[in-house]
Simulated scan of single mutants.
Amino acid sequence: MNHARTRLVMGNWKMHGSLADNAALLGGLVAGAQRAGSAQLAVCVPFPYLAQARQALSGSTVSWGAQDISVHDRGAYTGEVSAAMLADFEVSWVLCGHSERRAMHGESSALVAAKAAAALGAGLTPVVCVGETLSDRDAGDAECVIGDQLEPVLALGAESLSRLVIAYEPVWAIGTGRTATPEQAQAVHAFIRAALTRHGAAQTRILYGGSVKAANASDLFAQPDIDGALVGGASLVAEEFLNIAAAAA
């Protein structure tokens, strides 16, 4: 990896957590955060727990984020959460276009890019998720699908691209226990890096997500275009998450 790009290990709690469980997990992360070395550590928590995350993590080296954002500033949008609301909780990061949002909520790539723009406008760092399904990969269409997902994001321009993060998550490897081989992951990361480079953003960080765990993290991080990880289930266990962070360090 180009060492100008700081490693980033980010947990996505998805719809997991309780006040009691979170307190133990966040406390464990703060206690062990030094194991990440120079890598950045972050967790994206459900909206109701943003205040708890801020309280537990303020003053530590672990930052916090949200899992979604509205394209709207305010108004009659029941259930939506705006960029300004996230900023109120000193959120650093926000996931945009996670595969579960795309699949279950019908989010288009254009909407995902608009969410990223809303985040950038409030000083938040969007983490734009892209990735192909198993049928896409089996058909040889992975790069075509990811290229289409990236297109409206790339159109935001070099300045915006320099302030966001891309996360590559092969949908077939999320929560299935299947992981793309380091070589498969690197091939897609290189494809994304080339697209970013063409748009003047070669240094934009690209994370790998898809059943990342301590056992496979070192091999993934050894690849030149993998700048960190977006971690699902393993981020709910402090020791496992910190072991992944140590591999990034």
Rank of each mutant, 00 (worst) to 15 (best):
L8K: 10
L25A: 12
V43I: 14
G37Q: 10
L25G: 11
N12E: 10
M15D: 06
L19G: 13
R5T: 15
G11A: 00
N22L: 15
D21M: 01
L41G: 02
L29V: 03
V30H: 01
T6D: 11
N2P: 13
C44A: 14
N12H: 11
C44Y: 01
Q55K: 15
V30S: 03
S18Q: 09
S38P: 04
L50I: 03
A23E: 14
A36Q: 01
S58Y: 02
K14Q: 04
G28K: 11
A39Y: 05
Y49P: 00
V9K: 07
R7T: 07
S38L: 09
R35H: 11
A51F: 04
L41N: 00
Y49T: 02
V43R: 10
L8Q: 12
G17P: 03
A33R: 10
L57P: 08
A56H: 14
L19Q: 15
A53M: 04
L8G: 03
L50R: 12
S18L: 02
A51Q: 01
L26D: 03
G32E: 02
Q34L: 07
A23S: 14
A36V: 03
R35K: 15
Q40C: 00
L19F: 07
N12W: 10
W13H: 07
L29K: 08
M15I: 00
M1T: 13
A53Y: 07
R5I: 15
A36D: 03
L25P: 06
A4V: 07
D21P: 00
N2C: 04
L8N: 07
L29C: 01
G17T: 01
M10K: 06
A24F: 01
G27K: 08
W13Q: 04
A20L: 09
N2Q: 14
Q52V: 06
N22F: 14
R54Y: 04
P46E: 12
M10F: 01
A31L: 00
L25D: 12
